[in-house]
Structures are given as structure tokens and as C-alpha cells.
Design a protein around this nucleic acid. Structure first.
Length: 328
DNA sequence: AAGAAAGCCAACCGCGCAATC
DNA sequence: CGATTGCGCGGTTGGCTTTCT
């Protein structure tokens, strides 16, 4: 199995010279790479095809985004890594202009250390053993995984939609059960809990504690979601490339719309001081709207809570705004 | 100022998969 | 249908740079 294309050839190795780069760029921009194994010969390079491919993909490609990673890119990396693990190529697909190698290096040199500093195991994203004494409650609510009060079957349409990054957020919401008010748990009438099952996944969806939202400065409510493959005890490893929670653009659109609404109300208050009190009421109402438990409301972001790989008491917000939050 | 240690990142290695022979 | 080939991937290495002592 496999092949030893490089080991049997006496070709140059190590760092690439500017002249070699120039030859490779010239060849690929004019002829395309075609078969990588033939590129060195055609381009006049004393390298193996594999080395040429790597140099082009990781360094010379014109669409590469150079420079340090943004905070949002870092967040995406952490989010997707929590689900996919060290599948760098898959993670890199969520970061236009970044290569798997770049993501991997960034992870190993920076992100890993940050997570450890936050008391998280970078491999599992669980709390490290020495940090597991943090309170196991969430804004006064017991966070031990609540039993779902309703289990819905997810048909293929829903599953496809959930796994497709391009599915509009409104479509996702419309696919959820239409009348969530009938599925509130008896012991927590304000916190509906759903579990959606398919042969491949279990989605646990829970409206976030409204009090938690009221503490939020960004005017966004969230629907914590945990997704786990029913047959995989680790909770990781078999999710597909395009996952709902890795759709930051949807979240941003939603959040921007909420922020715009709040901004408009604030501007109204500035323009019409005599109506300031009325605007305050309107703003308060906007908050209340955000607390609306209806899944058809567009006031949601998506979070994970209590997935098999996450310790009780830890709340990881996937919105582009907030970072890790510890609920103590 | 100099040597050591740590950080960073480009490149290599070896394996697995899929297409082709 | 097995062998070969090409490609892509994740893990690892090695060397350059930066920071620390």
C-alpha cells in the first residue's frame, strides 16, 4: 500500500528558493497543475510532485490569506474543532484563504495554550480534572442534563437542512416543531426542551434561561443545542462537514438585525427626548420579545450545552460576540 | 552581549482512499 | 479483482526567530 514517490527520487528537499517559487507559480498559472507528479519535470524543478503540491497549496496559492488569525477565525476554529477534532482540512474549509497546515500550526502554537489556560482540555474541550469543582448550576438552574420532554423524529429533509450550512436560518426554525408551548417541562415551564432524533444524530434543543439573556449586552437570545451521535459514546467524530453551528453568517445576520432594532429604538430616544420613556418601554419590550420561547421567533443564536463532551456548568457560546462563559 | 530555551511555521513523512490499469 | 498510482490528510520534524536569563 502507499507509494514512495519521494524517497526513491534524488530530488532537492528543504526550503524553497525564490527562483523555485517563481518557476512553480509560472508553470501553474499558465498550464495549471494537472498531474502533480508531472509538474516538477514540466516546470523545470528538481523537486518531487508532492513537494510542489504542498508548496503551492500552503504558500503560493494566490487566494491565500496571509497574516495572523482574527478573533472570529479563532472562534470558528475552536467551535469546529470541538466537534470534528483534529480534522484540520475540514476545519480549514470553514476559513476561506486558510490552509489546513496553517490552522494546525495556529492550533498547536496558540489556541491549545489558551484553552489550557482556561482550564479546558484542548483535545476533548472538557474541563481539565483540576477545574472540575466549578459549580454545577446555571444561573440558578440545575444543569444536570434534563430529560427531554418531547422527542421528535427528524425526517431526511430536516436532517439535510440542519447539516447544510447554506440553509437559511428561517428555514431551520420553520422545520422545528410548530407549537413549542405544549412541550414545556412541568418543572421548568419557561424552559422548553426538545430532543430531535434521527438515525444518525440526536439534537437536544433548549431555550436558554431568560434571565441569562437579560444579562446579555448584545440583545440576543440563544437556543442551546447539543448534538450527539446516539451510537458514539464520545459524542464526536462522525459529524459531517457542514454543520449548523458553524454558520456564523446566519448568527451574525440575526444578531445584527437585533442590534439594529435596539439601535433604532435608542436613536428614537435621542431624537425625541419627550418620548424617551416610551422608547425605554419599547426597548424593554424588545427584550421581552427576545425572551419569547417560540422557535419561530428569529431571536435565536445557537449554543451547545451539556453535550456528551462538555462538563456540567460550562456554557460555550458559539455566537461571534461572546466567548467562553462560566456559569457559576 | 551571549547562550539557552521557547515559539513558530514551512516542509517532510507515512498512511489511507479512490481511481486507473 | 488485485496491483499500481496519484492525491489528500494528519502527525511530526527541523530550522529560523524571538524571548528569556
Amino acid at each position: 500500500m502507499g507509494h514512495r514517490c519521494c524517497s526513491k527520487q534524488k530530488v532537492k528537499r528543504g526550503l524553497w528558493s525564490p527562483e523555485e517559487d517563481e518557476k512553480l507559480i509560472k508553470h501553474i498559472t499558465t498550464h495549471g497543475h494537472g498531474s502533480w507528479s508531472s509538474v516538477p519535470k514540466l516546470a523545470g524543478l528538481d523537486r518531487c510532485g508532492k513537494s510542489c503540491r504542498l508548496r503551492w497549496i500552503n504558500y503560493l496559492r494566490p487566494d491565500l490569506k496571509r497574516g495572523s488569525f482574527s478573533a472570529q477565525e479563532e472562534r470558528i476554529i475552536i467551535d469546529v474543532h470541538r466537534i470534528l477534532g483534529n480534522r484540520w482540512a475540514q476545519i480549514a474549509k470553514h476559513l476561506p484563504g486558510r490552509t489546513d497546515n496553517e490552522v494546525k500550526n495556529f492550533w498547536n502554537s496558540c489556541v491549545k495554550k489558551k484553552l489550557i489556560a482556561q482550564g479546558l482540555d484542548p483535545n476533548t474541550h472538557n474541563l481539565l480534572p483540576c477545574h472540575k469543582t466549578i459549580n454545577n448550576h446555571y444561573n440558578g438552574c440545575n444543569l444536570s442534563h434534563p430529560k427531554p420532554t418531547s422527542v421528535f423524529s427528524v425526517n431526511s429533509q430536516m436532517e439535510d437542512a440542519f447539516m447544510d450550512m447554506n440553509t437559511p436560518f428561517s428555514t431551520l426554525l420553520s422545520l422545528l416543531p410548530s407549537d413549542p408551548s405544549t412541550h414545556f417541562p412541568h418543572d421548568s415551564p419557561n424552559i422548553p426542551i426538545y430532543e430531535l432524533q434521527s438515525p444518525h444524530f440526536v439534537w437536544t434543543i433548549q431555550e436558554q434561561n431568560p434571565n441569562a439573556f437579560m444579562d446579555s449586552s448584545m440583545g440576543t437570545s440563544t437556543v442551546p443545542i447539543s448534538i450527539s451521535p446516539p451510537t458514539n459514546p464520545s459524542g464526536f467524530g462522525i459529524l459531517e462537514d457542514n454543520c449548523l453551528w458553524s454558520n456564523p453568517s446566519s448568527l451574525q445576520r440575526i444578531e445584527v438585525s437585533r442590534q439594529d432594532e435596539m439601535l433604532q429604538l435608542e436613536q428614537q430616544a435621542v431624537k425625541n427626548p419627550q418620548h424617551e420613556k416610551a422608547s425605554e418601554v419599547q426597548m424593554e419590550n424588545a427584550h421581552i420579545l427576545n425572551m419569547d420561547a417560540s422557535f419561530r421567533s428569529s431571536n435565536f443564536g445557537f449554543d451547545f450545552v451539556e453535550s456528551p463532551g462538555m462538563s456540567c456548568g460550562m456554557h460555550y457560546n458559539t455566537s461571534p460576540v461572546d466567548g467562553f462563559a462560566w456559569d457559576c
